[in-house]
Amino acid sequence: MEKIIEVKNLNKEFTSKIKLSGFRNSLKALFKPEYQQMKAVDNISFSVAKGEKVAFIGPNGAGKSTTIKMLTGILYPSSGEIRVDNLVPWQDRKKLAFKIGTVFGQKPQLWYHLPAMDTFYLFGKIYELDQAKFQKRLNFLIDKFQVREFVNQPVRKLSLGQRMRCEMIASLIHQPKILFLDEPTIGLDVVAKQQLREVLNLMNKEEETTIFITSHDAGDLEKIADRVIVIDRGRVIFDGTVKNFKDKYAWYKLIDLELADNHASEKLNLRGVKILAQDKLSLKLEVDIKKISVKEVIDKLLNIYQIADITIAEMPMEEIIANIYEQNLQKIK
């Protein structure tokens, strides 16, 4: 399959001035600065095929943003190779800019006080698109993303979900082959997140747009990605499909019970079920889903207890990743 992103032995080190507190030290730093090296990306390699949807996840400071900045040509590596659509990002930056779209969660592209339509036309000019083709493309996107109703209202009047859909259009106007998204769902509510994910999947399906998304959000992982790359402390510690990811690393679910009374018809003794906390009228269980299904456990619980309320929670994403890292650390040791 055609590889649209190829990363080989990528390394990135940053030099920063050591800044100690205090006035004297500030003066010293001015005249005789001391530096320290920080390795942000440590010998990573991976490749992405055309049309794939990759989630690039990891804890804060893991090197996600640095990697994506190198892929888009914003930063250049200390060593290693990158090829994006057969271009070297930091060398052919402007050429690459025409082929990629970017959505950086922290930096909106739409002009806030003007209708989104104005930004779209501006982008049409920025990407030097042919007038006729641009119009056609714009109409196509507006219909597909269902924004016609509000695309002529000032952006500040739109809801977050509507704004997000317009942001997506802006990043897709020039029909990029790859869409890079850096934490796009940050601060969005449930509905907005859903709309964004639908739209991404749509573009991928219809135009084979390769999607490369960094995120902290478990939902992004499950609802968009078909592949996951986990990075921690600058290193890749997992690279595989989402299914493999969950099978391998998400091994429990939590059940929180509120009881109507503290009467139990029998003692709870199931293989794979651990009692984490128990109170007169509440019970917290950890269910190892590799050993027993949640359905089985609930059936049993309904028999034993008088249940007032029940909450089932998945193993939190942070924990999954931390778990992966733990395993990684063990492996190193």
Partner: peptide
């Protein structure tokens, strides 16, 4: 934010 302009044409 200046860096983001690098990814634009």
């Amino acid at each position: 934010n200046v860096a983001y302009a690098l990814a634009k044409p």
